[in-house]
C-alpha cells in the first residue's frame, strides 16, 4: 500500500539493474483532446472557489466569425462572465451581480475566485470586444458554493422517523433539554472550535502517513551476516547450537545469521538415523567493529 521509500538503506537498491519505469504500465489509446461540443462546465471546489472547463468547436468559431467579422477574435478578448444567480431563475439579465475575468485564448479551464460563499453562480464564456460589448458563446450549469461558517438561521424543525418495529418507542425525555437551544448550541460550538479542525488529511489507504524525513547527511552503513552451510548423509538428525535444522533432499543445509559483535560458538552435531554415529564440528567466530 505504501509507496514511500524507506530512508537511507534505499540507496542499496541502486546496485540492482533498474527496469524501465513503466514495467507495469501499458497505456492504451490516448484520450481525445476534444469531444466536439461547444460547452462550459462549472464545478464547486470550496466555499469561495469554483472550477470551469470548456471546449469551443471550430464550427462555433466559424459561426462567430460569420456573424461578427473575420477579425472578431483579434478585436476581442476571451472572457468569463460570472453571474450571481442565487435563488433566481436566471434569464441572462437578472443576476444579482456579475464580474468579468479575462482569460487567455489557449486556456480551456480556469479556477475562479467567486468571493462570496453560499451563493449560486453560473458563467458565460464569451468575447469582450474593444468597445465593451459581450458576445456570449456558451453558458455553464449553475453551481452552489457551500457555507464556511455556522448558519445564522436558528429556526428549528424536528422530525420523527420510526422504523416499523419501533413504533412504540418512548420519547420521554427527548425534549427536556434544561437550557435554551441557543445556549446549548453556543457551548457546543465553542467546544468544537477549541479543537482545531482536523481532517484525515486524506489519510486514505493508498497514501502515506507522513512525509519521510530526508536524510541529507553523508552516510555509510555496513553489517555482516554469516552463511553457514554444509552437507551430511540424508536422513541425518542435524542440530546447530542445539536447535534442529531440517536438511534439503540432497543432505545439504544452508543457514544465514546476522552476525553481531562478540564471540559465537556454533556447535554443529550430526547424528545418523540409527543413532550409531555422531559427528561434531564447532565453529568459533569473533567479530569486532571499530
Amino acid at each position: 500500500m505504501d509507496k514511500t521509500k524507506g530512508g537511507a538503506s534505499q540507496k542499496a537498491a541502486r546496485i540492482t539493474p533498474s527496469p524501465k519505469q513503466d514495467y507495469y504500465i501499458e497505456w492504451g489509446e490516448p484520450l481525445p483532446e476534444s469531444y466536439g461540443d461547444t460547452k462550459i462546465i462549472l464545478m464547486p471546489r470550496d466555499p469561495r472557489w469554483a472550477y470551469a472547463y470548456w471546449e469551443i468547436t471550430n464550427e462555433t468559431k466559424e459561426n462567430i466569425k460569420k456573424k461578427f467579422g473575420n477579425d472578431i477574435f483579434q478585436k476581442s478578448r476571451f472572457t468569463l462572465r460570472v453571474y450571481d444567480v442565487t435563488d433566481i431563475q436566471f434569464d441572462g439579465r437578472n443576476a444579482h451581480r456579475h464580474f468579468d475575468l479575462g482569460i487567455t485564448e489557449t486556456a480551456d479551464n480556469w479556477y475562479i475566485n467567486m468571493g462570496v460563499p453560499e451563493r449560486s453562480y453560473c458563467v458565460d464564456l464569451g468575447l469582450l470586444t474593444l468597445s465593451g460589448d459581450f458576445i456570449p458563446i456558451t453558458r455553464s450549469n449553475v453551481v452552489h458554493l457551500p457555507r464556511e461558517s455556522v448558519s445564522p438561521v436558528t429556526d428549528e424543525a424536528w422530525m420523527q422517523i420510526r422504523s416499523e418495529f419501533e413504533k412504540m418507542m418512548k420519547l420521554a425525555g427527548l425534549d427536556k433539554t434544561g437550557i435554551s437551544s441557543a445556549e446549548a448550541m453556543k457551548i457546543l460550538i465553542q467546544r468544537i472550535e477549541k479543537i482545531a479542525p482536523i481532517s484525515s488529511g486524506g489519510l486514505s489507504s493508498t497514501t502515506s502517513r507522513g512525509k519521510m524525513k530526508k536524510v541529507k547527511r553523508f552516510w555509510l552503513m555496513a553489517d555482516t551476516e554469516l552463511v553457514l552451510y554444509g552437507a551430511t548423509e540424508r536422513n541425518t538428525q542435524l542440530t546447530i547450537q542445539g536447535q534442529h535444522v531440517p536438511l534439503k533432499a540432497d543432505g545439504t543445509f544452508s543457514l544465514r545469521f546476522a552476525l553481531p559483535d562478540g564471540k559465537q560458538e556454533i556447535p554443529i552435531v550430526a547424528v545418523s538415523k540409527d543413532k550409531s554415529n555422531t559427528e561434531k564440528i564447532t565453529i568459533i567466530i569473533n567479530k569486532k567493529t571499530k
Binding site: P146, R147, A157, W158, Q160, R162, S199
Partner: peptide
C-alpha cells in the same frame, strides 16, 4: 427517532474539508 431537520453543507473529510 426524533431529530432536528436541516440540510448539511457540502463537505468532505479531505484536506481543507471540501472538494
Amino acid at each position: 427517532p426524533r431529530h432536528q431537520v436541516l440540510t448539511p453543507s457540502l463537505s468532505s473529510w479531505g484536506d481543507k474539508g471540501y472538494n
